[in-house]
Simulated scan of single mutants.
Amino acid sequence: MDFIEQKRHKELANLSSFYRLVYSEIEEVGWEHLVRFGGDLEFLSFRITDKKGRVHVMEIQLDKTYPQKPPSVSAEVPYIFNVKWSVKSRLKDLVQQFREHLEKLQEFWSTMEDIDHSLCVTNKKELSRATTCRQIDIGNDCLIMLSINAKDPSSLPECRFMGSGLVVNPVRKLWLRNNKQWMKDKTFLENLAFVLETELPRPSHVLENDQQVECGICYAQYLPMDEELGSRSGAGTDHTCDNTSCGRAFHTVCLVDWLRSITTTRQYVDFLVSLAFIWLK
């Protein structure tokens, strides 16, 4: 009986020591970062924000022998880092390793976000920050499945085509012929358009945004590269109509030329002068 009591007291003492240790280490990380924890404190999750403002949840599993046995880590990332641990390590060290791991994944996530925003990605609701594949609708009932290397997102992705042979075969031939010219110094989207020799279909919201920035007079987003335009050469639209029923974007240059072409411009004199002032600045 004495042996059983001694064993029980020892277990309680170990538990008490474990709880005090974990509580003190949570304090070091910051209670504001703690999302939830298990009643036995063997499970913890922290909210970590990376430098781009993305919010991540880091889940940590502890053993009762902690810190002798290293904790295990899981998170919504394409691959997890190798935990560097010693008996002197603390939770704050683990969180710092996770932050460093997140920084290594910034280019990957930026690439995936560009793809999601600019191309017709299917099954978006099933995607997560751990997903390295994207299924893209390129039109004519043809889909491409891209597998992006999370450790080197600017490299040539693995590609698989889905659709009828009549549509897929020509696209596959383009890929096989041109993929050796994939350049790491170009954006992922630029490379994809170059290899497939076409501008891929874009989501409706992107098309709407493009229409909003196109000049309502010349119907181009950017002015031509012309020495006569001086600093305005190649410039984008720089004026938006205040009339809510219009709301179109314009190049100041185009507006000035248009107003000058109207024979009854007296009612626009003040407006024209202000535009001319902007033009001459």
Rank of each mutant, 00 (worst) to 15 (best):
M1A: 10
M1F: 09
A13E: 13
L15A: 05
V22Q: 01
S24L: 08
V35T: 04
F37Q: 13
K51V: 12
D63L: 10
Q68E: 14
V87M: 09
K88G: 06
K92M: 05
K92Q: 12
K92E: 10
D93Y: 11
E100G: 09
E103A: 04
K104L: 07
Q106W: 05
E107H: 07
W109C: 00
T111G: 00
T111D: 00
E113F: 03
I136A: 01
G139D: 03
D141H: 14
D141L: 11
S147F: 08
I148C: 01
K151G: 06
S154T: 12
S154K: 14
F161H: 04
V171L: 13
R172W: 07
W182V: 07
W182Y: 06
K184L: 11
T187W: 04
L189R: 07
P201H: 08
H205R: 07
H205N: 10
V213Q: 09
C215L: 07
L229E: 04
A235W: 13
G236R: 09
T240A: 08
H251F: 06
V256N: 10
L259Q: 12
I262M: 13
T265G: 09
T265P: 03
D270I: 06
F271E: 09
A276D: 12
F277K: 15
F277D: 15
I278V: 12
L280I: 15
